[in-house]
């Protein structure tokens, strides 16, 4: 499946406090409402303007900070098709896979704000349609590929009879 959309650029060190602020803690059991504030403390206009399929393009250490899985969940709920960044913080990475949000580690300096991108996860290719460039992305570890292919961790457990089946 190919993902298509335009790039929203963010800088280095975007934390889970930027993505899903602590001051909205009381909305954590109301994810559709929380999703209306996604990325609010990094770019207040983002949540209202993002289009289904768009990409979040970050710098270094995207998603650093707290373990709140609400962060990748509301990115996905907002319609974002994948997060591309130079590096991704560990817990955010795991959470993104569990909720079925693709994350791609690559040199994002080549992508400009608003560039049209096409991502082919199966082939491992990111095409920048605006700039006419393309780059290959390394495959995820097999464990993560398996969880993502099953549609996230909940579906994985249901599909494998209530067990982890990752060996």
């Amino acid at each position: 499946m190919k993902l298509n959309g335009k790039a929203w650029k963010f800088g280095d060190g975007i934390s889970t406090d930027h993505i899903a602020p602590g001051r909205l803690f009381h909305l954590r059991s109301n994810l559709p409402e929380l999703a209306k504030h996604v990325m609010e403390d990094a770019r207040p206009e983002f949540a209202a303007a993002v289009q289904p399929g768009d990409f979040i393009v970050g710098g270094r250490n995207f998603g650093q900070g707290s373990s709140r899985e609400h962060a990748p969940t509301i990115i996905k709920l907002a319609g974002v098709s994948a997060v591309l960044a130079k590096s991704i913080a560990r817990i955010f990475f795991r959470n993104a896979i569990n909720v079925g949000l693709p994350v791609i580690i690559m040199d994002t300096d080549t992508i400009a704000e608003g560039d049209k991108l096409e991502v082919d996860l199966a082939e491992g290719v990111v095409k920048n349609l605006t700039q006419g460039t393309s780059c290959r992305i390394p495959p995820l570890p097999p464990v993560m590929r398996k969880i993502l292919a099953d549609g996230g961790m909940v579906e994985h457990i249901k599909k494998h009879g209530g067990k982890l089946d990752l060996e």
């Binding site: 707290s66 709140r68 817990i91 795991r94 961790m153 067990k163």
Partner: peptide, 28 residues
């Protein structure tokens, strides 16, 4: 919770994850 790693001071391999991972640990 990301600061689960506090347990390392007692040489516990203690690490933070998200809610779904911990739901799996609760069940299995």
């Amino acid at each position: 919770d990301s600061h689960t790693c506090t347990g390392g001071a007692l040489c516990t391999f203690a690490t933070g994850m998200g809610s779904t991972d911990i739901a799996v640990a609760f069940g299995l």
